[in-house]
Design a protein around this nucleic acid. Structure first.
Length: 620
RNA sequence: GGGGCCGUAGUUAAGUCGGUUAUAACGCUGGCCUGUCAAGCCAGAGGGCGCGGGUUCGAGUCCCGUCGGCCCCGCCA
């Protein structure tokens, strides 16, 4: 069959046990030849020695006389030189093309003065080739394998094996390996045991949609792929293992984002006989170690902390980006009874009026303000009130509704000055905070307030335990149903459940949540009660979590843990826009693998075996 | 479920108000060339515009549908 990328008129056919491409060049077996070092590792210290390299042709520069070939392997690139003085290898080199696979033996020598390449780690030396074996040829490439490629991501994913040869992607995966190794080393040194948990597990009602796996031996019954090993790691604590960890794949059948894939990797850990502080301390050590071993960076610990209330109050979001200011200010009291109907109505409902003061942004154009309004609306705001503080005073659609006293009070509360832009949100707390939080990020990006380099960690603690789901008309767990309430709030679980804080903590890096965990409920009576609050009946609880409730009744130690999203950590550590760049074989937004073309239909025979019938969706 | 952006040679893009034979760069093929490293110079091949309808004398250009990619809301911790 024609290979991908082959062009009409130059079709290349892949014949089993294939012969050479052309008459003049023949593929050869390895024939016992051994590599002596990686291409990227050749240095002046090798001068005068004869080495053997194996790799791919990055580029050929044929001067008719001299031929230069850049040979690449995973460690880097080195320049090979073919001189007409050695006619046999020189002739072979003439027919070499990009991405041919070569084995070469040659002598390392210093490059002549004036021809050194300082942009290359191997740029002081070159290899004068004495023997060349063509191990394989290559069809013409669908795209150029260069780091600064602007090839569409779809093409890159279709030919992922080529994309993976690019040094930038290779380096990211090498770094990912280092971080995974450091995780294992650090946690092992600290008494954690790596224990595997099942991939075929029981579906649970809470949380994300499960990926289901039909059971052939039990027709009509299904396993679920784990959303996380949560229950199993708790069971391991009950089983007496005390400290557990795993670098583990998790599955959630939800829509994708730049930082979300349907299968992703967690660094998952759990400890017994600990409180939140103990988990946080050990995990700060882990993060320190990962950044030290990974990119040689010494992080300062302990990381700063914010309570959930502070985070949302000051930054609008529970994953605050604390790399810049532009904090939210609560103006509820400042505008109480101010006479502006929108504000008065909001305050009357017990909702907040909040604002951010964007320093020096009074120059924003109509379009800038429209963009910000669109951001606000997309997060549920009805609009976005703004004020430009100009030399002439308030320039604003709402200026006429506010007295000079109120204007002065607002300006003072925000510490605003001429040249500033004020943006308001008046809504229920969740909307007001989210909207201003997102507007804040937008302005931060727009104005270049966010430092490009650096890693800014913050723990967010004291999350609320429960949230009320308006569509389902019931309480839902903010973290998960096994999270313990704070001891001093426990009593309010019956009287005022939304005010109960959980022993939960998230680690936020540069405004991204990279990990989260909690101290778990270790008493079956408390767990039963929480299930009750979540609207899970006793029958349902027994059906879905009976084994956990049973286990909790047999001497469960206090325990808690955390899970980090390895993909997100790696994306931020490597400065990648998307976690797809730190995953060897990622999926598209439709959860497809465009290289292997998964998912796919299967034979009727396979369906029959597992008692599955496919129902075509009716066209509406 | 919803909103936005995007599909034109192998790749990345240009293509005006619908109008002759759809441009360019890189890559590819052939030739020349002994110090290049995005090598250089000369010549050449290569697409009918994601797919399917429609409007029109005439459709990359307009309309409808559909498939796919990216970002986001919902969803998800």
């Amino acid at each position: 069959m024609p290979l991908p990328g082959a062009q009409a008129g130059q079709e290349i056919f892949c014949i089993s046990g294939g012969l050479g491409l052309t008459d003049s060049i023949v593929m050869e077996p390895l024939g016992g030849l051994k590599r002596t070092c990686y291409c990227g590792q050749v240095r002046p210290s090798h001068m005068g020695t004869r080495i053997t390299l194996m790799g791919w042709v990055q580029r050929r520069r044929d001067h008719g006389g001299l031929i230069f070939i850049d040979l690449r392997d995973r460690e880097g690139v080195v320049q090979l030189v073919f001189s007409p003085d050695a006619p046999a290898v020189h002739a072979k080199a003439h027919d070499i093309r990009s991405e041919y696979v070569l084995a070469v033996t040659g002598d390392v020598r210093m490059r002549p003065d004036g021809t050194q390449n300082t942009g290359l780690a191997t740029g002081l030396v070159e290899v004068a080739v004495t023997e060349l074996k063509l191990l394989n040829d290559s069809a013409p490439l669908p795209f150029m394998l260069e780091d600064d490629t602007d090839v569409s991501e779809m093409t890159r994913l279709k030919y992922r094996y080529l994309d993976l040869r690019r040094p930038s992607l290779q380096n990211k995966l090498v770094l990912r390996h280092k971080v995974a190794m450091s995780t294992r080393n650090y946690l092992s040194e600290n008494g954690f045991l790596e224990i595997e948990t099942p991939v075929l597990t029981k579906s649970t009602p809470e949380g994300a949609r499960d990926f289901l796996v039909p059971s052939r031996l039990n027709p009509g019954a299904f396993y679920a792929l784990p959303q996380s090993p949560q229950i199993f790691k708790q069971i391991l604590m009950i089983g007496g293992f005390d400290r557990y960890f795993q670098v583990v794949r998790c599955f959630r059948d939800e829509d994708l984002r730049a930082d979300r894939q349907p299968e992703f990797t967690q660094i998952d850990a759990e400890m017994s006989f600990v409180e939140a502080e103990d988990v946080i301390t050990v995990m700060e050590g882990l993060i320190r170690r990962l950044f030290k071993d990974g990119i040689g960076l010494e992080l300062k610990t302990p990381f700063p902390r914010l309570t959930y209330k502070e985070a949302v109050g000051r930054f609008g979001l529970d994953n605050p980006d604390v790399r810049f200011g532009l904090e939210l200010v609560d103006l509820t009291e400042t505008v109480r009874n101010c006479g502006f109907k929108v504000f008065d109505d909001t305050v009357a409902k017990g909702w907040p009026v909040k604002a951010v003061c964007a320093k020096g942004c009074a120059e924003f154009s109509r379009k800038d303000l429209d963009d910000l309004t669109a951001v606000a609306v997309s997060y549920g705001a009805k609009g976005l009130a703004w004020v430009k503080l100009t030399a002439e005073g308030w320039q604003s659609p709402i200026a006429k509704f506010l007295s000079d006293d109120v204007k002065a009070a607002i300006t003072k509360a925000l510490n605003a000055a001429t040249g500033d832009l004020i943006l308001f949100a008046a809504d229920k707390p969740s909307v007001a905070n989210t909207v201003l939080g997102r507007v804040r990020l937008n302005i931060g990006n727009r104005m270049g307030l966010i430092p490009k380099h650096g890693f800014n960690f913050v723990w967010v603690t004291e999350f609320p335990m429960l949230d009320y789901d308006e569509t389902e008309k019931r309480y839902v767990a903010v973290h998960h149903p096994f999270t313990a309430p704070m001891d001093e709030d426990l009593a309010r679980l019956d009287t005022d459940p939304l005010t109960v804080r959980a022993k939960a903590y998230d680690l936020v890096l540069n405004g991204s949540e990279i990990g989260g965990g909690s101290i778990r409920i270790h008493r079956s009576d408390v767990q039963s009660k929480v299930f009750g609050k979540l609207g899970i009946s006793e029958d349902e609880a027994r059906l879905r979590f009976g084994f956990l409730l049973d286990a909790l009744s047999f001497g469960t130690p206090p325990h808690g843990g955390i899970a980090f999203g390895l993909d997100r950590v790696m994306a931020i550590m490597t400065g990648s826009e998307s976690i797809r760049d730190v995953i060897a074989f990622p999926k598209t937004q439709k959860a497809a693998d465009v290289m292997s073309e998964a998912p796919s239909t299967v034979d009727q025979k396979q369906l029959d075996e597992i008692s599955i019938r496919v129902v075509k969706k009716k066209a509406e």
